[in-house]
Simulated assay, not measured.
Amino acid sequence: MAPRILMNIAGEGVMKRVGIYLRVSTNGQTTENQRRELVAIAARSGWQVVGIYEDAGISGAKGRDKRPGFDRLLKDATGRKVNMIAAWSVDRLGRSLQDLVGFLTDLQALGCDLYLHQQALDTSTPSGRAMFQMCGVFAEFERGMIRERVNAGLARAKERGVKLGRRPVKVSVEARIRDLRAEGMGILKIGRTLGIGTSVVQRVLAQAEL
Rank of each mutant, 00 (worst) to 15 (best):
Y53S: 11
L97A: 12
I58K: 00
D106Q: 06
A61Y: 02
L74K: 08
V50I: 10
Q34W: 03
G51K: 04
N33L: 15
D91C: 14
D55C: 01
V39I: 15
A77P: 00
G46Y: 10
A61D: 10
F70V: 03
W88V: 04
Q108F: 06
I41G: 00
A77L: 08
R35D: 09
D99S: 04
V49R: 00
A56F: 12
K81Q: 12
N33S: 12
A40R: 12
K75Q: 15
T78K: 09
V82A: 06
I58G: 02
Y53E: 06
L93R: 07
V49S: 02
K81A: 11
V50N: 05
R36K: 14
R67T: 10
L100G: 06
D65M: 15
G63E: 04
R95D: 08
A42S: 15
R72T: 14
G69T: 01
K62I: 01
K81E: 14
G79H: 11
E37K: 11
V39M: 13
V82P: 02
E32D: 15
I41N: 00
D55L: 03
L110S: 00
M84A: 09
G46E: 08
E37Q: 12
D55K: 05
L107N: 03
V90R: 10
L107Y: 02
G102T: 08
R72L: 11
K75N: 08
L110Q: 13
G57H: 00
S89R: 13
G94T: 14
G69Y: 10
F70R: 00
L110Y: 13
V90D: 09
R72W: 02
R36N: 05
I85M: 15
L100T: 06
A86N: 07
A77I: 07
I41W: 07
A86C: 13
L97S: 03
Q108G: 13
S45L: 03
S96W: 11
R64L: 15
G111N: 04
A43N: 10
N83S: 07
G79Q: 14
A56L: 13
L107T: 02
F103I: 12
E32L: 03
A40S: 11
R92E: 05
Q34S: 08
K81M: 07
L74P: 01
S89L: 00
S96E: 12
R92M: 03
V82Q: 14
K75H: 12
A87N: 07
V49E: 05
G79C: 01
R72Q: 14
P68S: 12
L73Q: 07
Y53V: 11
G102I: 09
Y53T: 13
D55M: 11
L93V: 11
A77T: 08
Q108W: 14
G60D: 11
I85Y: 10
T105A: 05
A77G: 03
T105H: 11
A86E: 09
N83Q: 08
